[in-house]
Design a protein around this nucleic acid. Structure first.
Lengths: 370, 370
DNA sequence: TTGTAAGCGTTATCAA
DNA sequence: TTGATAACGCTTACAA
């Protein structure tokens, strides 16, 4: 069933059928109705390849992410899901389609990007997991394919990006911890070239400096932004001679591993170590204690990305957007630390005195066995 | 840059260029080398629309999933990520591309499917989250589009599907719990029309019946397969007069909520309630105690889905595959229950005697505050 | 081994 | 308002 079949069936020309179907004005209302009805009845939908070929555009936009074969690293997916939902909803309003392009761990990401761009499968693209210096950005700028980067980059060029409010979140988190008396604060970030890892640390460093606290290198913990990485962070904190009383994490999945590791060592989040996390996840309120974190408006981010990309495709000027984030106060921070004494003992045993000063933890307390 | 430009640049015909690029045999090695080099240098890649139009196929396969706007329901994503990775790797070997098609919560899923199928964007499709009676299957069978369903369905027709080994998992789980002395066992499943919810309960029922235990309706708990649903399951278990000593969950995300709810009530997973879960997730080994669950070979599932789909596209006969699953013994089950007495007291307070009989729980024990 | 040209399904231009 | 036709970029049958 193609446009010729439909035209023959209606005994009119394919030109008229096309015009009727595409809402062109130069067609009588009567004919349009007839065409639409017949198309519906016979199940005709224009072939995308024919359309794209003729129009020089596909009406499809791509969202590029890398799958990974490390099972531990795949948690990002849940995060993207809501973004896709908002993005998809927006694009549907604008009669565009979304395809998610997954570059597998086994193939060269740049080769994958080049292939999809050059074959003209999409009219524009959103890229995520932006790197400090991102060759994808350099390439897309050079090829002049409209795109939006979810995450800033140091790569030069005129392009739109949307990013988290690292400055805001870092400032509020550090202020909050400072008010609670914390003076020795660690920052846990992603051990990769992903840009947010650096932005986050820089923002925390600046916020601490306002209180005359220097974020020394030993307090910057770089691990994979997932459960296993969080566990390792726990191990590193525990092993520190002068253990920080608070830690700010860049990724909510890290919290799961960190909690686990701390409990294993007999330490309680929110009592022995204060924890604040930059983003939230489906499980954050089911941790014990619930996590103090920031709600990320993922659906809205999806919509914004869509708007920005359509703007770019339509030739608009680049835009830069910083998304606001809302604090969700949980029980993982908030205990009072006396700022005037060192909290951790010299030999690495748990800080009993600090613990004594803590407010009660209402969490995983197993009912005594009789 | 199109094939004409490239041909002109090389001063040969477009036919020869095309043949050289597509590895056709009737072209001299010398010309081929020259063409390939020029294409590389000038950055030429064939336009996909032109190709698809001519060949009647796109070389692209789609994976259809529904995004959802309920943030609580989006956990499936992490699960799909590894599947995509395996699938993508396989398809790359076969020179096919994968696009993930997201139907947003706001649009009619069937309309979305019809549109993508009829526009001929993909040569074949994988669908997931299969429903008991699935209109997508009926449609795809009718349209004769090659597809594979990830999950069986009652919908009729000749099609390939791949599914979990519910019988195997249910049997092994029930046997294991029975050996541990459990006699009153609940089953928590998804409260939706997704088919696996039914298959899983049926398989558990059959396994229990072999021990002359009837799975009564009050022991089948249907909730959303996510953290919130798991929490509600916890609430329902706690409220039961004759509380089950064990529960089998269909989804690992439920465990997070269930653990949380049990701890809140002063009950410990693996000591007061035995828990076994059908699948695993990135967090399952970071729960306290680690979850007894089944490892799902997601990457292999992705590859299998790819093989099955390519087979379907090539006109092969439908295949049905059941994936084996490997038990990961954690600490969430395994305490001994004396089978000859009722474990739960009448008034709903925690089963102290059962707890006393339990082996020690090595989990969230908070270090005493001095 | 290479060149020529038809045709895939569509939309847009031009003429009627 | 409609019809005829060219053109989008490509692959392939056929001719040279």
């Amino acid at each position: 069933m193609n446009i010729h079949d439909l035209a023959r069936h209606l005994d009119i020309s394919i030109g008229t059928v096309s015009r009727a179907l595409n809402g062109r004005s130069q067609v009588s209302e009567k004919t349009r109705k007839r065409v639409l009805a017949a198309a519906e009845k016979l199940g005709y939908t224009p072939n995308q390849s024919g359309r794209s070929l003729r129009q020089g555009a596909t009406g499809i936009v791509g969202f590029l992410i890398a799958t990974t074969h490390e099972r531990a690293e795949k948690g990002e997916a849940a995060f993207f899901m809501s973004i896709f939902d908002g993005l998809q909803a927006y694009l549907a309003e604008r009669n565009r389609d979304l395809v998610v392009l997954m570059s597998s761990a086994e193939q060269d990401p740049m080769a994958f990007l080049r292939r999809t761009v050059e074959r003209r499968i999409v009219d524009g693209m959103i890229i995520a997991e932006t790197r400090r210096h991102d060759p994808r950005i350099d390439y897309l700028v050079r090829r002049k394919l409209p795109f939006v980067s979810f995450g800033r980059s140091l790569s030069a060029g005129e392009y739109s990006w949307l990013d988290f409010d690292f400055e805001g979140v870092a400032t509020r988190s550090i202020e909050r911890l400072y008010r609670q008396g914390h003076r020795r604060i660690a920052v846990a970030t992603a051990a990769s070239d992903i840009n947010y890892g650096f932005l986050f640390v820089d923002a925390c460093r600046a916020a601490l400096r306002r209180h005359k606290i220097e974020l020394t290198d030993d307090l910057v913990l770089r691990e994979a932004p997932n459960e296993a990485g969080g566990s390792r962070i726990g191990g590193r904190l525990i092993a520190m001679a002068d253990r920080p009383t608070a830690v700010v994490l860049v990724d909510n999945k890290m919290a799961t591993g960190l909690y686990h590791r701390l409990y294993e060592a007999g330490l309680a989040p929110g009592r022995d170590v204060a924890i604040i996390v930059l983003d939230d996840g489906p499980h954050t309120q089911y941790l014990s204690p619930p996590l103090t974190c920031y709600r990320v408006p993922l659906r809205e981010i999806g919509r914004s990305l869509g708007e920005m990309l359509v703007n770019a495709i339509d030739g608009g000027a680049p835009r830069h957007v910083i998304t606001p984030m809302e604090l969700v106060a949980g029980g993982s921070d908030g205990f009072r630390v006396s700022p005037h004494r060192r909290v951790a003992p010299r030999n690495g045993t748990p800080p009993r005195r600090a613990a004594a000063a803590a407010k009660p933890v209402r969490q995983p307390r197993v009912a005594p066995a009789e």
